[in-house]
């Protein structure tokens, strides 16, 4: 399985569009939102760059679901991927390697984006950036599993991408990625708890600025459990013949 994962990671790394999406895209997005909303964070405690580095990295991490669908069944690599199915390997290794590859790719992208934001914009990550890395990693693992599961269920990469893209945007809007959910009113703020984006963002802020780790551990636990659930669905529903 390791050799398949290596190959899949390499496939992702040589794709310029995906690399831009994972590294340059979050940096540009954070810069744009940071500049636009400077006046909304007019205190010495937190800047708009500090806020949007956390929220937009969460956004990018969840959007790794779209990259995992690409790495699994994108038209140009689908046939090559399916050929692996004829090798004497376990079924889970086919989709598992794509999940693992996307997960590793997202960690690398996140690392680059974090270093860039720290060096260029002197972003303050509160107490310890490792807490942010931990919860983002859990989010990324869930997103990678969710993307592959969606392709397996819908059997088409394009449809899975469209569905995931629109659902992720809706949850991101609700979860405080682009603006505070409470800016629209207390009701909307309370409704936003249904968004996984909100769980991750809130738990990251609690850990980084309040030294409160309970919510973060719970969030990581839930995301890992959900990832496990996705893997179970993948194992039950993945039938190679359906994609030929």
């Amino acid at each position: 399985m390791l050799s398949i994962v290596k190959r899949d990671v390499l496939n992702l790394l040589v794709n310029p569009a995906l690399n831009l999406y994972g590294t340059l895209f979050p940096v540009l997005l954070i810069t744009a939102m940071g500049v636009l909303n400077q006046s909304m964070f007019a205190t010495d405690i937190i800047s708009s760059y500090d806020y949007y580095t956390v929220t937009l990295l969460v956004f990018i991490m969840f959007n790794m679901a779209v990259i995992s669908t690409n790495s699994f069944m994108e038209v140009s690599i689908k046939q090559a991927n399916l050929r692996i199915g004829y090798a004497p390997i376990k079924r889970y290794q086919i989709y598992g390697s794509k999940i693992m590859a996307t997960f590793l790719f997202s960690l690398l992208s996140m690392g680059i984006a974090l270093v860039f934001m720290r060096v260029i914009f002197s972003v303050n990550f509160g107490i310890d950036v490792l807490w942010l890395v931990l919860v983002l990693s859990a989010g990324s693992l869930f997103a990678s599993s969710l993307g592959v599961m969606t392709v397996i269920l819908l059997k088409h990469e394009e449809s899975a991408n469209q569905l995931l893209g629109i659902i992720l945007i809706v949850f991101a809007l609700m979860g405080g990625v682009f603006f505070s959910p409470y800016a629209i009113g207390e009701t909307f703020g309370n409704l936003s708890v249904v968004s996984p984006f909100r769980w991750v963002i809130e738990s990251a802020f609690l850990a980084l600025y309040d030294e409160c780790y309970q919510v973060l551990f719970k969030t990581v636990g839930v995301l890992v459990l959900l990832s496990g659930l996705c893997l179970m669905v993948c194992q039950k529903c993945f039938k190679l013949e359906a994609y030929l």
Binding site: Y21, A32, L36, N70, Q162, G165, I169, F179, A183
Partner: peptide, 22 residues
Amino acid sequence: DNAAALFSLIVILTSILSGAFT
């Protein structure tokens, strides 16, 4: 996929800036 990702991003950013929500 690249076009769709860019489209979503443009729509979200411009809608927020246009005051769609607040």
